[in-house]
């Protein structure tokens, strides 16, 4: 697993992206969530050997990245981070599935390799879509969208609390860690005993913080009901966004334009 410090940095970065201003940033969170869902389902529902059919789906991330003015290099570097995990599981496919299914000139291609690359591509696509969703929407707006889509308010409120205190507590943890590491020479003292105490301290502090937060909520009239500030309404643009992408993605899924185009390109010659 990657270091949490690095992950937190990413967290900040994504959040800053969500603060940008583009037409796509203003699309209702619900429209973006649902479009992303349609995208993921379309991609995932392709067969394991339908490698080429995956390519046209790049239109979704590419257009959203471009339209939202998101930094390509940063997102790509983040997306590539998941590759090792996928490689670990996917690499068994070429080893186990050696059936030669295609021959391109001197190269014999086994089914395993094709399904391996299809796993990699699917990962890239689905991870990209999730990251783009967050970068274009921002976590709080995403949570509000989910609440409007029916996620229980208790769960949404709790997600927002988590998000709010992530950095506060992470910085506390970083200070604790620094304090320990400065006094641990050559790894001594980083064992389980001191770890248990440190985490215990962090836990108690977090707990007490939760109590203070609760008190401050009470002081402002909280009586058990979480009020979501009335979110934006679902406008014409949002409907168009959802319908447009939904239809386009379904069309890509059903009519595999890659193959049609491929047949056109190669077929014409042969």
């Amino acid at each position: 697993m990657r270091s949490v410090e690095g992950a937190l940095l990413d967290f900040r970065q994504l959040e800053r992206l969500a603060e940008r201003d583009s037409p796509l940033h203003h699309v209702d969170a619900r429209a973006k969530i649902l479009a992303t869902l349609v995208f993921i389902i379309c991609v995932i529902s392709l067969g394991r050997y339908q490698l080429a059919a995956l390519f046209p789906f790049f239109i979704f991330p590419v257009v959203l990245i471009a339209g939202g003015g998101l930094p390509v290099r940063y997102l790509v570097s983040k997306i590539l981070l998941v590759i090792p995990f996928v490689l670990v599981v996917g690499i068994f496919n070429p080893l186990l599935d050696r059936e030669i299914v295609a021959i391109a000139g001197p190269v014999q291609i086994s089914g395993g390799w094709i399904s391996f690359f299809s796993i990699v591509l699917r990962s890239l696509l689905t991870v990209a879509s999730a990251l783009i969703l967050v970068s274009l929407t921002g976590f709080p707006a995403l949570c509000r969208g989910l609440a409007q889509l029916g996620l229980p308010k208790v769960f949404v409120a709790q997600l927002l609390f988590l998000y709010r205190y992530l950095f506060v507590l992470a910085e506390e943890a970083a200070r604790l860690k620094l304090a320990r590491d400065q006094r641990c020479f050559g790894g001594k003292g980083t064992g389980l005993a001191s770890f248990g105490t440190m985490i215990g301290h962090l836990l108690l502090r977090s707990w007490e913080r939760a109590e203070r937060v609760y008190r401050s909520m009470l002081s402002r009239g909280f009586a058990g009901e979480f009020h979501c500030p009335s979110g934006s309404s679902f406008g014409v643009g949002d409907t168009l966004f959802l319908l447009g992408w939904g239809l386009l993605l379904l069309a890509i899924r059903l009519y595999d334009p890659a193959r049609l185009l491929g047949l056109l390109l190669t077929g014409g010659v042969q």
């Binding site: 490698l51 299914v101 334009p257 890659a258 491929g262």
Partner: peptide, 10 residues
């Protein structure tokens, strides 16, 4: 079998 043409098209 479509994969070659598929990859070109893709």
């Amino acid at each position: 079998g479509t994969s070659l043409s598929g990859i070109v098209g893709g």
